[in-house]
Amino acid sequence: MRLKRVYFEDIRLFKTTASLVWTLLFLLLLFLVPFIFKTYYLSVVNLMCLNVIVALGLNILVGNTGQISLGHAGFVAIGAYTAAILLQAGVPFVFTLIIAGLVSCLVGAFLGLPSLRLEGPYLAIVTLGFGLAVMVIIGRMEMFGGRMGLMIPRIDLNWSGLSYDRTLYYVFIIITILMTILAHNIIHSKIGRAFQAIRDSDIAASVTGINLVHYKTLSFAVSAFFAGIGGALWALYLQFVTPGTFSLMMSVLFLATVVLGGLGSVTGSVLGGIVMTLLNLQLEKVVTVPLFGDLIVFLSDTIMNPSGIANIRWVLTGLILILIILYEPHGLNGIWLRIKRYWNLWPF
């Protein structure tokens, strides 16, 4: 007996009317943000968008395909610098964005090729080396502005009739939504299934007809594409790029974002991107939290050193990473699913 006759229900974006309604409400809220909040908060949301996009891509590689990348900042840098050069040359934004994504994608495919037979620490060191190499090469080459970096001109957004900041906000939001849908489709299509198959057992994947070379390379390329788009937006957001931005630390933080959000899930990438951005911006303000903040100030004054208190950010990020792995391996997505289940059953 078949309970589900219409299989399309399992494919479509919104599985229930309720989820459609909630999504529309959420979109409405996003639409209204520029009219409610100050410009500063718009730039916070923009930063979230960047992190979400990169996390979506990295999650496909790490969470779905089970490969490790410690060099994703390299792809972001490639996207950002491509965008910077193209925008300086006056190429329209839409093309810039796509080209930045594609250049990064191509490099991703190239990095994917030598990585096909590698796993675990071997893959980790190759990606890590890649990230560092990109940083060094960009920093030493004249055409990329060397250590000083490149300035990026503002793009033309006058067509909207709104202020630059508001329009930029909408541009970021729309791109992020499109990228989220793209990631969702990849994961739920046969391509995503093949990725997950490789993660679970590459031997079984190959005997079910999955071409390992093709799909591993594809996974790197797709992931790099997302990072490239994220990088292009990064260039637009900061208005200047320097090689120092795209450090090993950035790669580590991206990995942290994905783990915090929840491996292998689109919701996880989105939640991770949002929360990690907030943490990065707000962790230094932890001293203003009652009790906990006081404790930290007290520690600072007694055992530690008050002038180094900004480093509390790394301490807390590190703690969060460890606690997530130890107590909530499915990350924020796991917590989210539990809340949803609870509300579905409420009030029972």
């Binding site: 580590v252 180094g308 950010r313 790394w314 990020t317 590190g318 460890i322």
Partner: peptide, 14 residues
Amino acid sequence: LGFQLLLFGLAGWK
């Protein structure tokens, strides 16, 4: 990596 960040932060703090 988390432990690395933790130690890095603590050392920087101190």
